[in-house]
């Protein structure tokens, strides 16, 4: 079936079977492999994307459910110059990245959180990441990076 959606600001129409997930659509049909599969049952958040302003696990969204929606993936998170944005920069600066497989999902969760709560406490940041598993970092430097980004955005 034809699925029409906006991905990272670009309108696309994809001919795809109805029983695949949004994750499959992004990775296999649109070649946006920055979104990862970690568990495929909504437990790890490696596949998290922002759909119409809300964080979702793309493995738990049926591709046709995204028809008519605006999706932002990690490939769509960029500074105006096309380089990494402030959150991505802070992930690097604060040592929040190790193996990196969870990081796209973590950044999407961070962006989704900051959209709704521009100046979260560390505890609120942890709540915002509660659906994103990381096995390397112990989360602390990820929380540091999001906290620093929130403060930076406040200053403008």
């Amino acid at each position: 079936m034809l699925i029409e959606l906006t991905v990272n600001g670009r309108d696309v129409a994809v001919d795809a079977p109805p029983d695949i997930t949004l994750l499959d659509l992004l990775r296999d049909y649109l070649n946006l492999t920055g979104t990862k599969e970690g568990c495929a049952v909504g437990e790890c958040g490696a596949c998290a994307v922002i759909m119409d302003g809300r964080l979702v696990n793309s493995c738990m969204v049926l591709a046709p459910q995204a028809d008519g929606c605006a999706i932002t993936t990690i490939e769509g998170v960029r500074a105006p110059d096309g380089g990494p944005n402030d959150l991505q920069q802070n992930f690097i600066e604060y040592g929040a990245v190790q193996c990196g497989i969870c990081i796209p999902g973590m950044i999407m969760a961070g962006e989704a959180l900051l959209m709704r709560n521009p100046l979260p406490t560390r505890e609120e940041i942890r709540m915002g990441l509660a659906g994103n598993l990381c096995r390397c970092t112990g989360y602390q430097q990820i929380v540091d990076a999001i906290e620093a980004t929130a403060k930076g955005r406040q200053k403008g």
Partner: peptide, 19 residues
């Protein structure tokens, strides 16, 4: 210091085996 492979990982460009 900045981790040498962090940029590709935060932008989603790093290629893992399933990619």
């Amino acid at each position: 210091a900045r981790r040498v492979d962090a940029l590709g990982k935060v932008t989603g460009q790093a290629k893992y085996i399933a990619d």
